[in-house]
Amino acid sequence: RELEAFAERFKQRRIKLGVTQADVGAALANLKIPGVGSLSQSTICRFESLTLSHNNMIALKPVLQAWLEEAE
């Protein structure tokens, strides 16, 4: 499924970029996305391991996609 594929791609790109899960969480606050502050390292970890609820995964995907586009 698309969500699982994105989570895997996100993790691979993050590692290639040399960015930690905690760095991603902190950097999200800098994107100034309305309603989104920083996220914890454990939230990023749970996203990558697909252990968040489906609704949370869907909500976080565009936020993490925005970070990925900014980071690349």
Rank of each mutant, 00 (worst) to 15 (best):
H54N: 12
A66D: 08
S40A: 07
E8Q: 15
A71K: 13
A71I: 08
V24M: 05
M57R: 03
L39C: 14
A66R: 09
L39D: 05
A29P: 05
C45F: 13
R9I: 08
D23Y: 04
A71F: 09
A7E: 00
R13V: 13
K11I: 09
I44T: 10
A26F: 10
T43P: 01
A29W: 08
Q12F: 08
R1S: 10
A29C: 14
F47P: 00
F6L: 07
E69L: 10
A71G: 07
E72Y: 03
V36N: 06
F10I: 01
E48R: 01
R13Y: 09
K16I: 08
C45S: 12
S53A: 14
V63T: 06
N56Y: 10
N30L: 06
F6M: 05
C45T: 14
L3E: 04
K16C: 14
L31E: 15
W67L: 03
F10C: 02
E70R: 12
V24P: 01
A66E: 14
A22M: 08
G25C: 15
E2I: 02
L31G: 02
Q21I: 12
T43H: 05
Q21M: 03
V36M: 14
M57T: 08
A29M: 09
N56R: 07
A26E: 12
L17I: 04
E4V: 12
E4C: 08
E4M: 13
E2L: 04
G25P: 05
S38A: 04
P62W: 02
N30R: 08
G35Y: 06
K32N: 13
V24H: 00
Q65V: 11
G37A: 09
Q21A: 10
Q12I: 08
A71C: 07
G25L: 08
S38W: 04
I44V: 15
L17K: 03
V19Y: 13
G35D: 12
E69A: 14
R13N: 09
S40N: 08
F6K: 00
R13D: 06
L50M: 13
Q12L: 11
S49H: 12
N30S: 08
R13L: 09
A29E: 13
G37E: 14
A7W: 01
V19G: 04
L3N: 02
Q21E: 15
K16Y: 07
L28K: 00
E72K: 04
L3Y: 07
C45R: 05
G25Y: 11
L31C: 15
F47Q: 01
A5L: 14
W67Y: 10
V19T: 07
A29R: 10
G18N: 07
A27I: 08
I58V: 15
K32M: 12
P34K: 03
L28D: 01
K11Y: 03
A26K: 14
Q21K: 05
M57K: 03
S40V: 04
Q12S: 11
R14K: 01
S53E: 11
S42N: 15
K32V: 13
W67C: 03
R1F: 09
Q12M: 12
S38C: 06
E4L: 07
E70S: 12
S53F: 06
P62E: 06
E69F: 07
E72S: 08
E69R: 11
S53H: 08
T51W: 04
L52S: 13
D23M: 09
E69Y: 11
N30M: 06
E8N: 03
N56L: 15
G18A: 03
A29S: 10
E70F: 04
L50Q: 15
F6V: 01
S40I: 02
A22T: 07
E72H: 04
S40F: 03
E70L: 05
C45L: 11
V36E: 11
G35N: 09
T43I: 10
I33F: 07
A22E: 12
E70P: 03
V36A: 10
E8A: 14
I15L: 10
R9W: 09
E48L: 00
R13T: 15
A7P: 02
T20H: 07
R46N: 15
L64R: 01
I33H: 06
S49G: 09
A7D: 00
G25F: 09
M57P: 00
E4D: 11
P34Q: 03
E69Q: 10
P34A: 14
L50W: 01
S38L: 12
L39F: 02
R14D: 03
E69T: 11
Q12T: 10
D23S: 12
I58E: 15
R14A: 00
R9Q: 15
K32W: 08
R9E: 14
E72M: 04
F47W: 03
A29Y: 05
Q21H: 15
R46S: 14
S40R: 08
E69V: 12
L68V: 09
A29K: 14
E8T: 14
T20R: 06
F10M: 00
S49K: 12
K16M: 13
W67N: 03
G37M: 08
E2M: 03
L17V: 02
V63K: 04
L50A: 15
G37S: 13
L31V: 15
S53P: 14
L60Q: 04
A5W: 04
V36P: 04
R9L: 14
E70A: 10
R9M: 15
E4F: 14
K32Q: 08
G37K: 13
L50E: 08
L50G: 14
P34T: 11
V24A: 09
S40G: 09
T51A: 12
K16P: 00
E2D: 15
A7Q: 02
N55D: 07
A71D: 02
A7C: 09
N30G: 11
E70Q: 11
W67K: 00
Q12Y: 15
A5Q: 15
A22C: 06
C45Y: 13
P62S: 08
L68I: 11
V19M: 15
S53Q: 04
C45I: 15
V19I: 14
T51R: 14
R13G: 14
T20N: 05
G18W: 00
P34F: 03
R1V: 09
G37R: 11
E48G: 11
L64E: 01
L68M: 11
D23F: 07
R46F: 03
N30H: 12
I15C: 07
M57H: 01
A29I: 06
R46G: 15
V63S: 08
T43C: 05
G18M: 03
G25Q: 03
A22D: 08
T51Y: 04
N55Y: 08
F47G: 00
A59G: 11
T20Q: 06
E70K: 12
L68A: 05
A29Q: 15
L3V: 15
K61L: 07
K32T: 10
W67I: 01
E8W: 07
E69C: 13
S38K: 14
Q12A: 13
L31R: 06
Q65C: 10
F47S: 01
G25T: 11
L68Y: 05
G25M: 06
I58D: 15
L68N: 00
Q21L: 07
E8S: 12
F10N: 01
S42Q: 14
V19L: 14
L60G: 02
E4N: 10
G18R: 06
V24G: 01
W67P: 02
F47L: 03
L31M: 05
P34L: 04
R46M: 08
V19D: 08
A5F: 02
L17Y: 03
A22L: 06
P62H: 10
S42P: 04
F47M: 03
G35T: 07
R14M: 00
A7I: 11
R13C: 06
A29L: 07
L64Y: 05
P62A: 04
R13W: 05
A7V: 14
L60S: 12
S49E: 15
T43M: 12
T43E: 06
L68F: 02
I15N: 08
K11L: 03
S40C: 11
T20I: 02
S40Y: 04
R13A: 13
S38Y: 11
Q65Y: 05
A22N: 13
L60K: 01
K61S: 05
G25N: 00
